[in-house]
Design a protein around this nucleic acid. Structure first.
Length: 471
RNA sequence: GCUCCUAUCGUCUAGAGGCCUAGGACGGAGCCCUCUCAAGGCUUAAACCCGGGUUCGAAUCCCGGUAGGAGCGCCA
């Protein structure tokens, strides 16, 4: 069975690149009837916070990417297991104690860099047959290093980047346990992936250089390495790497920008992956069609314009009942209480064609739910001027007599235009400004119907007074 | 510095040696439709990083440049 995992370290929010990696892992496993697991890599106790764990879960939940393990795995809860494996390796001779101090190592690195060499551990405490190691210095707590094979090659058959060959000579003996006994990242990952039965490791390509080491450790442990897929990163619109101080946003920020979770997912899945010319995918289609043969090895820029377009496509076809809760969330977020107004579903049906985001939809729908705070002055000057007086007067009369349904309202508005010998636009625009406060709204008959008789007529009366005073 | 990765329209990409006069999508431009804004329809501009090879034939394979990027921690 295919088993994948998403293993963030809780040092910040779930950013867009992490979300895409999680999505790929989720789709790959789910599309194959496998399992998608969650693991929290919190061995760095200094930087890991509960707040970050919560933020990551919040982001995952909003995106609907739940892990199949009811309780995610926390590395800090597995220290006993890591200690056990370390001891096992020490006993087997695939790991050894190193008493070199940090200062010593720093000096070594500096020397190597001065000689323009790649910094690496020189094996000064590495046991070799026929070699006598110095006596361990008193009072120094040793670290544990992995005894990396010093000959041959490690071949990584990456599902995205193809075959990558590393010379064992390039790989030095990395520390797997610190002097305080705590295990390090590369080691924990290996043990966890092995214990969790991970078959496919899908992660950012900044880990490519870690992979040969992880494979070596796995081999030293007698385990079969999983398959790997290294996903390229996401760049900002300017082509620069996304970072906290440069444009990196948490997925919840995309919610605040008015994205639907499924739309964000769709945009993300197409960033670096393709399935012929298809742009839009349902979640089921993503699961059925996603594969690594069509994932690009090169980094991709995040294009907000296209993301908005995808979002708009979703808004247009998603069942309004599903959009409604998110819409409600956005309305309240801008201080609008939708409870006394028209049905959200009905408003969505009228607005979704003309809004790319829910933020836009909420802003453009304010007037349905709250009293007009004033007119857009430019629009009012144009459409509620003196010449609007007879138009508004006739409209009030005609609408007052109309059955408050879209068809009847449509007929009434047309009737007024005809009677006054005006084009429909000359009649519709004053109504718009009168009831929406601005010259933009859904079709006028629909807008009137949604707003309701009392509110509509009241606003038309107010507009008439305004036009009269302008005369 | 060393190791590794990457390179098709502005952006995301299709492309597995001849289907390529390089396709689609976003964005741009123009036209049509129209009660506003949209949506929709049609049309259009726009790319194979450079140089060598291999081959009858290269966007596709190889080599070398160039340009980006990642990694080289008792961080993850």
């Amino acid at each position: 069975m295919t088993v994948t995992r998403f293993a963030p370290s809780p040092t910040g929010f779930l950013h867009i690149g992490g979300a895409r990696t999680a999505l790929f892992s989720y789709l790959y496993a789910k599309g194959r009837g496998g399992r998608f697991l969650l693991r929290i890599e919190d061995t760095d106790r200094e930087r890991s916070t509960q707040a970050a764990v919560d933020a990551i879960f919040e982001g995952m939940a909003w995106l609907g990417l739940a892990g199949d393990n009811a309780q995610p795995i926390y590395q800090t809860q597995r220290f006993g297991r890591y200690a056990e494996v370390i001891q096992q390796m020490l006993d087997a001779g695939t790991a050894y104690h190193c008493y070199a101090s940090k200062e010593e190592l720093d000096a070594l690195r500096a020397e190597q860099q001065a000689r323009k060499e790649k910094p690496r551990y020189d094996g000064r405490w590495r046991p070799e047959p026929g070699r006598t190691l110095p006596a361990p210095p008193a009072g120094v707590k040793p670290v544990v290093r992995f005894r990396s094979p010093d000959e041959g090659q490690v071949v990584l058959k990456d599902l995205i980047k193809g075959e990558i060959v590393f010379d064992a000579v390039e790989l030095d003996d990395l520390i797997i346990a610190r002097s305080d006994g705590t295990p390090t990242y590369n080691f924990c990952v290996v043990v966890d992936d092995m214990d969790m039965g991970i078959t496919h490791v899908i992660r950012g390509d900044d880990h490519v250089n870690n992979t040969p080491r992880q494979i070596q450790i796995l081999q030293a442990l007698g385990a079969t390495p999983p398959a790997y897929a290294h996903v390229s990163m996401i760049l900002g619109a300017d082509g620069a790497k996304l970072s906290k101080r440069h444009g990196a946003l948490g997925v919840t920020e995309y919610r605040a920008m008015g994205f639907m979770p499924e739309a964000l997912l769709n945009y993300l899945v197409r960033l670096g992956w393709s399935h012929g010319d298809q742009e839009l995918f349902t979640r089921q289609e993503m699961m059925d069609k996603f594969d690594f043969d069509h994932v690009s090895a090169s980094p991709a820029r995040f294009d907000m314009e296209k993301a908005y377009w995808v979002n708009h496509q979703y808004l247009k076809v998603t069942d309004p009942a599903i959009v409604a809760p998110e819409f409600d969330w956005h309305l309240r977020r801008i201080g609008v209480d939708p409870s006394g107004g028209p049905l959200l579903i009905a408003v969505i049906e009228q607005q979704r064609e003309r809004c790319r985001t829910l933020v836009e939809m909420a802003e453009k729908s304010r007037f349905f739910f709250e009293e007009l705070s004033g007119y857009n002055e430019k629009d009012a000057a144009k459409h509620l001027a003196a010449k609007a007086v007879p138009v508004l007067g006739a409209l009030i009369e005609a609408l007052n007599a109309a059955d408050w349904q879209p068809e009847a309202l449509h007929a009434a508005v047309h009737g007024v235009a005809e009677k006054l010998g005006l084009k429909l636009g000359d009649v519709a625009q004053p109504i718009r400004v009168a009831i929406a406060g601005m010259a933009v709204s859904p079709p006028i008959d629909q807008t009137l119907a949604l707003l309701g008789r009392e509110r509509s007529l009241g606003r038309l009366q107010a507009a008439l007074r305004r036009a009269e005073s302008a005369a």
